[in-house]
């Protein structure tokens, strides 16, 4: 029913007008209830995931999990020593921190290029487009790429390959936030610096970065949170390992891969350890996200 129809009806016939009014408000109420329910559904899933995780994770999380390497299942025999996730924690810390170290400078420079040098140039637009595609591209394909580029020439899975795959995921996240934050800096600030006779690179390094620092740090934190839980690319690059290893040229364990392998093992004790690992990863990722949010809110 169009608005003019409605107007004509209500003008001529008060009964029809009341019926129409009732229908319209009933529709409105129905949509309101639907939207409340939808929000409840969304929050319910979040609550269900978090409670399951905390329930099963904290039940299994103890000192042994944090301090021992992988051990095969005990088949419920309590006299046998239990295994843990030390190898995976160490491997994840190494790979995530190195990948952040490799990816951040590149992402920072690309973001700077897009915001300061190539706001409207053809090359700039191409880089922006490709970076946006990389941001959402299936991460397992990055694993395939690094497999062909690094794993095959080296002759085996390696921590180095894992680091490179994760670094490729870091770059577009840092690019996006860096560009956005640099673009927020007022032009007057730049003009003031240039007016004092500073070269452009000093303006960027000493003034723009300083003004945008909290946003840039937020971007790096979000990138860390993103790669800390990445599993698929690591499956094809660093693959996983059952002992603590610091050798970047050999296969290296990581928390997500260990969770994946142990969760699918079918043994209750290994599955419990997988829940403990899942809890560790999620706590880390959520903590980083919340810190990033607080940083960003302070800024605005």
């Amino acid at each position: 029913m169009s608005a003019t129809d409605a107007a004509r009806l209500s003008f001529r016939d008060p009964v029809a007008a009341r019926a129409l009014g009732r229908r319209r408000s009933a529709m409105d109420r129905f949509i309101t209830i639907f939207c409340l329910a939808a929000t409840a559904v969304g929050l319910f899933f979040l609550a269900s995931i978090l409670t399951t995780l905390f329930w099963r994770g904290f039940a299994a999380l103890d000192w042994t999990v944090l301090t021992t390497e992988f051990r095969p299942t005990t088949y419920g025999d309590d006299t046998l020593p239990k295994g843990g996730l030390l190898h995976a924690i160490v491997g994840s810390l190494i790979q995530v921190s190195l990948a952040t170290l490799v990816g951040t400078p590149i992402g920072l420079l690309v973001g700077t290029y897009l915001a300061e040098y190539a706001r409207d140039s053809a090359l700039g637009n191409a880089v922006r487009f490709v970076s946006d595609i990389l941001l959402s591209a299936p991460s397992i394909l990055i694993g395939l790429f690094i497999y062909q580029l690094v794993v095959l020439p080296i002759g085996g899975f390696s921590g180095l390959a894992g680091v490179l795959a994760l670094a490729i995921i870091v770059i577009p996240v840092v690019v996006r936030t860096t560009e956005d934050m640099l673009q927020l800096i007022p032009a007057t600030l730049r003009e003031a610096v240039i007016g004092l006779g500073a070269p452009k690179w000093k303006m960027i390094l000493l003034v723009c970065y300083k003004a945008a620092i909290s946003g840039i740090v937020t971007g790096v934190l979000l990138a860390v949170a993103r790669i800390a839980g990445e599993t698929a690319p690591l499956l094809l690059t660093s693959f996983g390992n059952n002992v603590v290893s610091f050798d970047l040229m050999r296969a290296m364990a990581s928390l997500p891969i260990s969770i994946y392998q142990q969760a699918n093992s079918g043994f209750p004790d290994l599955i419990a350890i997988a829940w403990a690992g899942a809890l560790l990863v999620t706590l880390g990722v959520l903590a980083i996200n919340i810190i990033a949010r607080v940083l960003l809110r302070k800024k605005s």
Binding site: P105, I106, G107, L109, V110, T112, Y113, L114, E116, Y117, A118, L123, G124, A126, V127, V130, S131, I133, L134, A137, L141, I142, L144, F145, L149, I168, I171, P172, V175, P199, K200, W201, K202, I204, L205
Partner: peptide, 23 residues
């Protein structure tokens, strides 16, 4: 300094293009 820095930034941008092309 400007030329060096601009090329650093542009080079990083090219790395991004090359990565997608490489994939």
């Amino acid at each position: 300094g400007d030329a060096i820095f601009e090329w650093l930034c542009r080079g990083a941008g090219l790395i991004v293009l090359l990565t997608l092309g490489g994939i």
